[in-house]
């Protein structure tokens, strides 16, 4: 019962941005993929979610090869992406955003998804206050909370988070990451935290990959990766 990518190669047009990516994600765990901008993080997220066709390799979710499945089919089977920049439906209310997230769960376990959403709303009551506001009018931090709640409404088995810290202050990043841990613990979803903010991401992750120029240059338990030189090199050069 895992999400596995084997030998992924992907990119736009002729350019290959990712090559020979292997990674594994298990339910209930938080795995970080860290790298500086331009390393290929979003390409990885989009490829796993099915928004970008891969050129080579396989993606297997719970024993099923999904690389030929459309994005919506992957979402319905519980492989959920929170895209970079959150991409809320800004003209719709918070409630509508979260309700539409539930569409991916509607054929599996809508009831459990609803409970999980309630749980999140209880621990972040600010969203209840914003319930009927247009999502486009919320602050960056609130928007990220809505995006995460929307994803939980989809009852994810595997949740891919593409740079949830984007544009947030370190304090807000920390709050968002607290929410991520909560989601992992309460929903049992496997979370792939694709992040630039390495230090904070490594704090909450169990395992980590370092992505540099489209390749994985280091991997291991996050404490080891954090103390290795690989991260520093990937960000600040040699």
């Amino acid at each position: 019962m895992t999400l596995q990518a084997r030998g992924l190669e992907a990119g736009y047009g002729r350019a290959a941005i990712l090559s020979s990516i292997d990674l594994t994600l298990e339910p209930g765990g938080i795995v970080a993929v860290i790298g500086s901008n331009g390393a290929g993080k979003s390409t990885l997220a989009r490829t796993l979610a099915g928004l970008l066709r891969l050129k080579q390799g396989e993606i297997e979710a719970d024993g099923v090869l999904v690389q030929d499945h459309s994005a919506e089919r992957r979402a319905r089977s519980g492989l959920i992406l929170v895209p970079e920049g959150r991409r809320l439906f800004g003209r719709q209310t918070v409630a509508e955003n979260i309700r539409i997230g539930g569409r991916a769960a509607s054929r599996r376990s809508p009831e459990r998804a609803r409970q999980n959403v309630e749980m999140l709303l209880d621990s972040f009551p600010v969203l209840r206050e914003r319930w009927n506001q247009k999502a486009g009018l919320l602050s960056g931090g609130e928007q990220q909370m809505v995006a995460l709640t929307r994803a939980v409404a989809s009852e994810p088995r595997y949740l891919l988070l593409d740079e949830p810290s984007l544009g947030l202050s370190p304090r807000l990043t920390q709050e968002v990451f607290r929410l991520v841990t909560l989601i992992a613990r309460e929903t049992g979803a496997g979370i792939l935290l694709i992040e630039q903010m390495a230090e904070q991401a490594l704090q909450i992750a169990d395992f980590a990959y370092v992505l540099e120029q489209g390749r994985i240059t280091a991997e291991g338990p996050s404490s080891e990766v954090g103390s290795s030189e690989a991260v520093r090199t990937a960000y600040l050069g040699k």
């Binding site: 500086s36 810290s165 370190p170 304090r171 990043t173 920390q174 992040e195 630039q196 903010m197 390495a198 230090e199 904070q200 991401a201 704090q203 991260v231 960000y235 600040l236």
Partner: peptide
């Protein structure tokens, strides 16, 4: 860049 306050790891935020 790294999302931490200082070289030796984070007690407080910047």
């Amino acid at each position: 860049y790294l999302g931490r306050p200082a070289e030796d790891g984070g007690e407080t935020l910047t």
